[in-house]
Design a protein around this nucleic acid. Structure first.
Length: 536
RNA sequence: GGGCCGGUAGCUCAGGCGGUAGAGCAUCUGCCUUUUAAGCAGAGGGUCGCGGGUUCGAGUCCCGCCCGGCUCACCA
């Protein structure tokens, strides 16, 4: 059993029947005592408590609650006020989830959590009605309640609500993670992210930062006149990247479709149609391995700007990254795996310069050697000189690119959609952005000559025939669009998940994706147990 | 897919060379009207991931499998 199953699995078979009492039906030796699991006991207790709440006239799953402040608002408004400054009394109505509970007989304290912050409340028997005090005595860690009262400071100085009325808003039936260590089990954190969010405040911060990254990019692109669009996720032909796709099926049309590996070819069709600055922030799906840097579905920003080239996008990228870091993290410097990664500026060097600079295998090669097919053959198993140079880059340089770096000018063989350099047909006007040793962006001057695009597709088809499963397919509809004329254009993709990793200091991509793909969990058996307790 | 590490109470974790499973938090009972990892006294709670094997005896040793993490390969 995986540790993620928060509940012990239901025991199946005729000898067991979950109920308020355990029924013995002849499968166990007579007289043998069989104990209920704790979770079962707990469920039963909590469901009984719901009955008690109802008897007091409370709704166990509550109703609308009109609060005067959120907890963060109270903390920012009154967090630094002294006792004297809280007089005359400040009345508040607040709500949140109970995160700590300290009962002391006829009084007690609790912390309510809301929006990632917590506020203490104090419930004293003399200060509330008998009904509300009875409710207080029925509260469990994790319940969601509303409280009305006035602010004061306790003897130890903590800002606290002196409660005069309580409201019950939602009951928790299962026990909360441990209060001191939080939820540590990685698998459970991913599968039951809501528990992770409840128990580990820093997780909320990560996803708040991720949200700010995306809104910052949207705002910056919109300020520059880019239009946000959405293009198909289900595509009859997949393209725009080198990757294996997921396949799905549409019943009525009776066609197989691919989940997109990139939106590129559709966005360029839009540029043909006159949407000169477009962008899309959305999911791509690649049927490849899973690692700390790869999730099968991941979020990309992809944008296209007509009438510029890859040099123009280098400048734009540098500005976008700097401002995104500032908006998301408040500083251009990110702490990642012991490195201080500074997005204030982006270094630029060509792919071949990077191979030379980071060469680790004897004397550094020369530019001439990197252009020499014979020389390359001895140093890489790849089939073409261009692929060999890229191979050398990935082996020697990629992991060394810790500070944000633009690597430019790529071999044509590995870039079927990019425009060639006018003076060097074996290379294309393409760059990738690296940081923390990861590729976080990829951009190029778009190939807009349909004849050349046709030849590139045919080159890819030949690679595919040689067994390269990821080589690009022929896309005639896209070729047709280019035949109507696409302005000189440059486009770029930025991996949002990886950028979020760097800006939040997360070592695994799963820590910046709320629900990363995991193998499905086995049956939990909760419905059956709830059913067995339904009459309680 | 390969290598390494892990899975023990609801949660966080101990369990030396194989000898009938422990702690803290949480839960339950009692006490406690400014506590804060509240406290005090007591109680309950375990198919030790699953299945085989070795053994008089397995949480512990061996084999297979499941789930997860890291890493390599692939990929962005």
């Amino acid at each position: 059993m995986s540790r993620a199953a928060a509940l012990p699995r239901c025991r199946r078979g005729p000898q067991w029947r979950w109920n308020s009492t355990l029924h013995y039906n002849g499968w166990f030796p007579p007289g043998q005592e069989i104990r209920l699991s704790l979770e079962q006991d707990l469920l039963e207790q909590r469901l009984k408590r719901i009955g008690d709440l109802k008897a007091l006239g409370f709704r166990p799953y509550g109703a609308r609650f009109d609060f005067t402040h959120t907890i963060p608002q109270i903390l920012s408004e009154y967090g630094s006020k002294t006792s004297d400054q809280l007089a005359p009394r400040v009345d508040v109505r607040v709500c949140g989830r109970i995160q700590t509970l300290r009962r002391m007989g006829k009084a007690g304290f609790a912390h309510l959590a809301q929006n990632g912050e917590r506020l203490q409340i104090y419930v004293k028997k003399d200060a509330v009605s008998g009904r509300d005090f009875a409710l207080y005595e029925l509260l469990d860690l994790g319940d969601i309640i509303g409280a009305e009262g006035y602010l004061f400071r306790t003897r130890t100085g903590e800002l606290t609500v002196h409660v005069e009325r309580l409201e019950h808003l939602a009951k928790t039936l299962l026990s909360m993670p441990e209060k001191w260590h939080g939820l540590e089990d990685v698998e459970m954190r991913y599968r039951q992210r809501y528990l992770d969010l409840i128990a580990n405040p820093e997780v909320r911060r990560v996803f708040e930062t991720r949200g700010r990254i995306i809104s910052s990019l949207r705002r910056q692109l919109e300020q520059r006149g880019f239009l946000e669009v959405e293009t198909p996720m289900m595509q009859p032909l997949y393209g725009g990247a080198a990757a294996r796709p997921f396949i799905t099926h549409h019943n009525t049309l009776d066609v197989d479709l691919y989940l997109r590996i990139a939106p590129e070819l559709y966005l360029k069709r839009l540029v043909v149609g006159g949407l000169e600055r477009v962008y899309e922030i959305n999911r791509n799906f690649r049927n490849e391995g899973i690692s700390t840097q790869h999730n099968p579905e991941f979020t990309m920003l992809e944008f296209y700007q007509a009438y510029t080239d890859y040099r123009g996008l280098m400048d734009l990228s540098e500005e976008l990254l700097r401002q995104t870091a500032l908006d998301a993290a408040g500083t251009t410097v990110a702490e990642f795996e012991g490195h201080r990664i500074d997005f204030a500026g982006v270094r630029r060097l060509s792919l071949r310069e990077a191979v030379i600079e980071y060469w680790k295998d004897g004397p550094r090669p020369s530019m001439e050697q990197l252009a020499d097919a014979e020389w390359l053959k001895w140093r890489s198993t790849k089939g073409t000189p261009g692929e060999a140079v890229l191979d050398l880059f990935e082996r020697y340089a990629e992991a060394e690119l810790i500070q944000p770096t633009i690597i430019y000018d790529y071999p044509v063989e590995t870039s079927p959609l990019s425009k060639s350099k006018p003076d060097e047909p074996g290379y294309v006007e393409r760059f990738e952005i690296y940081a923390a040793g990861m590729e976080i962006g990829n951009a190029y001057t778009e190939l807009n000559d349909p004849q050349e695009q046709r030849r590139r597709f045919e080159m890819q088809l030949r690679m595919r025939e040689k067994g390269d499963e990821e080589a690009h397919q022929m896309d005639e509809d896209f070729l047709r669009a280019l035949c109507y004329g696409m302005p000189p254009t440059s486009g770029e993709g930025i991996g949002i998940d990886r950028l979020a990793m760097i800006l939040t200091g997360s070592r695994s991509i799963r820590d910046v994706i709320l629900f990363p793909l995991l193998r499905p969990e086995e049956a939990i058996g909760l419905a059956e147990r709830l059913r067995s307790l339904d009459a309680v």
